[in-house]
Amino acid sequence: MIEAILLFGLLALVFGLLLGYAAIRFRVEGDPIVDKIDALLPQTQCGQCGYPGCKPYAEAIAAGEAEINQCAPGGEVTIIALADLLGREPPAANPEVVEKPPAVAFIDEQTCIGCTLCLQACPVDAILGSAKHMHTIIAKECTGCELCLPPCPVDCIKMIPIGGDIPHWNWPDPNRSPAALPSPAVKTEEAKP
């Protein structure tokens, strides 16, 4: 019995040393430029750029497979920041990418049937609810990606623009028509812990 315990202890020690050596010898380091690009992206994980999230898009930019003007939630600010980071001239706006004002999802709880389709679609888990019970949005967690809109069978989810307060306010662009300016902010209730 004691020999078996000693044998297993010795084997555990040998395998532990081998794994420790392999971890040091065969270490794969991430690309620091990918991390810097990813830090500049808005982290909405919306997929509007054609990639399944911000990290894969950052990897594609670093590899030269994607242009830096594909992020709709980031808009022109993100394009300029990425151009500065990469030492490029900011490209012209992509006509296929429509920049939208920041928004948060709102669920009409009277209409919600509790189907959980929006729960499954939300990439940041900003929706609370369970099957056959009404759902609600955690406003602080919602990135405004709009991925919850298409799967909703009863159209009970609406996007409400964020703005009007000091942290989200910016000078209007004089080249835009008044009709193109975002609508006034609508205050939303946030889930309290």
Rank of each mutant, 00 (worst) to 15 (best):
M1T: 09
M1C: 09
I2F: 15
F8S: 02
L13C: 04
L13Q: 04
V14C: 06
L17M: 11
G20R: 05
A22L: 15
I24H: 10
R25N: 07
V34P: 05
V34F: 15
D35Y: 11
K36Y: 06
K36V: 05
D38F: 15
D38V: 08
A39H: 04
L41D: 02
P42E: 15
Q43T: 04
Q45D: 12
G47I: 03
Q48A: 08
C49M: 11
G50Y: 11
Y51E: 03
C54G: 07
K55Y: 13
P56L: 12
P56M: 13
Y57S: 00
E59Q: 12
A60Q: 10
A60R: 04
G64T: 03
I68G: 01
N69F: 13
A72I: 09
P73H: 09
G75K: 03
G75Y: 14
V77S: 07
A81Q: 07
A83D: 12
D84S: 04
D84G: 00
L86Q: 02
G87L: 14
R88K: 06
E89Q: 03
E89R: 03
P90F: 15
A93N: 09
A93P: 02
P95W: 14
P95I: 11
E99N: 02
A103C: 08
A103Q: 11
I107Y: 12
E109A: 13
E109Q: 12
G114I: 00
L119H: 06
L119Y: 05
Q120C: 02
A121V: 06
C122W: 14
P123M: 06
A126W: 09
A126I: 07
I127D: 05
I127H: 01
L128Q: 05
I137E: 11
G144A: 14
C145R: 06
L147M: 14
L147E: 12
L147R: 10
L149V: 05
L149R: 04
V154G: 01
I157K: 06
K158Y: 11
P161Y: 14
P161L: 10
P167I: 15
H168M: 13
W169T: 07
N170G: 07
D173V: 07
P174E: 09
S177G: 03
P178A: 13
A180W: 10
A180I: 04
A180Q: 06
A180S: 09
L181G: 01
S183N: 08
A185R: 05
V186D: 02
E189F: 14
E189M: 10
E190G: 08
A191C: 10
P193M: 05
P193T: 01
